[in-house]
Nucleic acid binder design. Structure first.
Lengths: 255, 255
DNA sequence: TCAAGTTGTCTGCTATAATAGACAACTTCA
DNA sequence: TGAAGTTGTCTATTATAGCAGACAACTTGA
């Protein structure tokens, strides 16, 4: 009895594993991988080593690794993509939609580290739809700011924000300096603004989304169209944001 | 995938056991029994239900129960006796033998609850051996006190103590009142006494030992012969104590 | 478009886990 | 002394765990 186990494992994690503990091999492998994920060994959203590689490093058969990964996938910790690899599934961040929605607060409250990144800024003319939302004439000058937001180094959403170029001519400069739309508005004496409306839909990630959100093409994105207004209800800015659907979960509290 | 699991087991793992957790059945049973022991479900030193009974209550085959018990026995938690049953093995209490040996201190230091119980008291005449130990003439009047000591409700030792009836005429009364030999001596102004010698041997439990120590007949007992003396080296009391060998382990510190 | 690398699925094979039954060896108790 | 109940041991069978190899289906990047 027990002779089979004495064969393999030379470098493995022999340390804590008793020869016969009544725990299946695939379970030990699954626990090992889960621990590495929890300790940050594999970045969230990133690809795990291939099944063959995991089999070698854990000194087990590939099928045993597959069973371990299957149990992890069943629990939502990883996601396997045929032909591509197996990826760490970041737990979806609960993203409440309220009148006051601040990305950094939401992400930070979930125990994640928020980060923002300015992608680009440009001047545009108001389309009919943006003009209607912002209560401006069609073709009015706008400043468009594109930014990427991350939580724990995993991209969460990429979005565009439009403001009136006449009212906030220095928006780009301010955003570049402070990295926060809240502070851009504060520089203009606006300390109280709220989300007036939020509309949600979904789409399939195109190449641009896939690149910026680190998604596979064909995976879903959540599209949010929002309008922020000041204390008197006057429109301040409009935004279109695309979220990696597999990383967030919107929470709408109805009253 | 995973449909295979849905097939078998209908009556099986009803309670807390998940359908497939990567833990063998015998291990689950072993953990279950260990938990019951730890929670005091089975008294220390007492008999477990029979293997057939355990198999029925856990809804597994008897051989699965046997494997579970084997793993527990290997760890020293239980002890199987052929034809009799399987018993809870109380971890042996480390019992250091020093010049100051107090049962309550030793047992308490090990995290156990010490208890003493007076069995009987009587008057005897000093045998030649006792007379020599206590430095009294042969036939001198002695008081004999028999007591039982327990740790966590498990009997540890049963012993006899002899004192001079002339020097300590009220020993029985005092011991009955205080339940401690230390306090009996203190009532006579003796606050400093120590163990002069300790001799250890072993024997097989007779019917009397078995009854009082809750042992099976034929199991080993440790026999301790000790002599306590006062600060000036004069003999105070002699004792003969029989320990349940399977519950204690003497520790002798040589210097 | 193609080659390399990935996951998914299939067929075997062997070892172990678990079940089932029977009987021996032993203890306990009447 | 004998019956009942216990643990120990044996054989046999089935289901699962794990190993091995092959190939399909798919993705990625050159």
């Amino acid at each position: 009895m027990l002779d089979r186990r004495a064969r393999g494992r030379a470098k493995d994690n022999m340390s804590t594993l008793q020869p016969d503990s009544g725990v299946t091999l695939w379970r030990k492998v699954a626990d090992s991988i889960e621990r590495e994920i929890a300790q940050g060994g594999y970045p969230a959203g990133e690809k795990l080593p291939g099944e063959m590689e995991l089999a070698e490093s854990h000194r087990v058969n590939r099928h045993t690794v597959r069973r371990a990964l299957a149990s992890l996938a069943e629990r939502g910790l990883v996601r396997a993509e045929r032909g591509s690899g197996t990826y760490v599934e970041t737990a979806r961040i609960a993203y409440p939609l309220r009148s006051r929605t601040r990305f950094s607060e939401i992400v930070g409250a979930g125990g994640h580290e928020p980060r923002g990144q300015l992608l680009s800024a440009s001047r545009e003319e108001a389309t009919r739809e943006l003009a209607r939302e912002l209560d401006l004439p069609i073709g009015a000058p706008l400043i468009r700011i594109d930014g990427l937001r991350l939580a724990d180094r995993a991209p969460i959403c990429v979005g565009s924000t439009w403001l009136s170029a006449e009212r906030f001519p220095d928006a780009e400069e301010l955003y570049r300096r402070f990295g926060s739309m809240t502070k851009v508005l504060a520089q203009h004496g606006i300390r109280d603004y709220r989300r007036a409306s939020t509309r949600i839909t979904a789409a399939i990630a195109d190449a641009g989304d896939a690149a910026r959100l680190d998604l596979g093409i064909g995976r879903p994105v959540l599209i949010v169209e929002g309008l922020d207004v000041d204390g008197k209800g006057r429109p301040l800015l409009a935004l279109r944001t695309r979220f990696a659907a597999e990383r967030v979960q919107f929470v709408v509290e109805t009253e």
